[in-house]
C-alpha cells in the first residue's frame, strides 16, 4: 500500500498547532503518533499524525532548535508520552505537558542523543 507522507501532509505554522489539533479532535480523529526529526538546517521537523476512518493526515511544521512548542496533551492526553520522548531524545522544549517527566523518561548515556554526535 502506498502512503507517501507527502500525500497526506498538511503544512502548518507552529502557532496554528493547538487550534488545528483541537479541530481534528472535534472531527473525531485520533492521534496516531508524533515524530520529530532533524532537518539539514538543524531545525526540528515535527509530524503529528491523525487518523479517522482509515484516512490519515500529518500536520507538519518546522521549528528552530531553541523554539518552545506548545503541548497538545491537554487535548490528547496520550500525547504526553510522545512529547516527553521528543524532549528526551532531541532536546526540543515542549511546554505544559500533562505529565512532564522532566527528562527522565529515558535516562540515556548521552543527553539528547538524536541531536548530537554519538559513538
Amino acid at each position: 500500500m502506498i502512503m507517501r507522507h507527502e500525500d497526506i501532509a498538511i503544512k502548518i505554522q507552529p502557532e496554528e498547532l493547538v487550534g488545528k489539533v483541537s479541530g481534528l479532535q472535534g472531527d473525531g480523529c485520533r492521534l496516531v503518533q508524533i515524530a520529530c526529526s532533524k532537518t539539514k538546517e538543524n531545525n526540528f521537523e515535527l509530524v503529528y499524525s491523525f487518523e479517522k476512518d482509515y484516512k490519515f493526515c500529518n500536520l507538519t511544521f518546522e521549528v528552530p532548535p531553541d523554539a518552545e512548542v506548545e503541548s497538545i496533551s491537554s487535548m490528547c492526553f496520550s500525547a504526553f508520552l510522545y512529547e516527553n520522548e521528543i524532549h528526551d531524545l532531541f532536546g526540543l522544549k515542549i511546554k505544559h505537558i500533562a505529565v512532564d517527566f522532566q527528562g527522565t523518561l529515558y535516562e540515556t548515556a548521552v543527553k539528547y542523543p538524536m541531536s548530537v554526535e554519538t559513538k
Partner: peptide, 20 residues
C-alpha cells in the same frame, strides 16, 4: 527519496513507521 508513512496491524495493534 522522500518520506513514507506506514501503518500496519501487528498482533499488539497498529505500528506506525515514518521513514524519511
Amino acid at each position: 527519496t522522500g518520506s513514507s508513512f506506514q501503518c500496519v496491524e501487528q498482533a499488539r495493534g497498529d505500528v506506525a513507521y515514518y521513514l524519511k
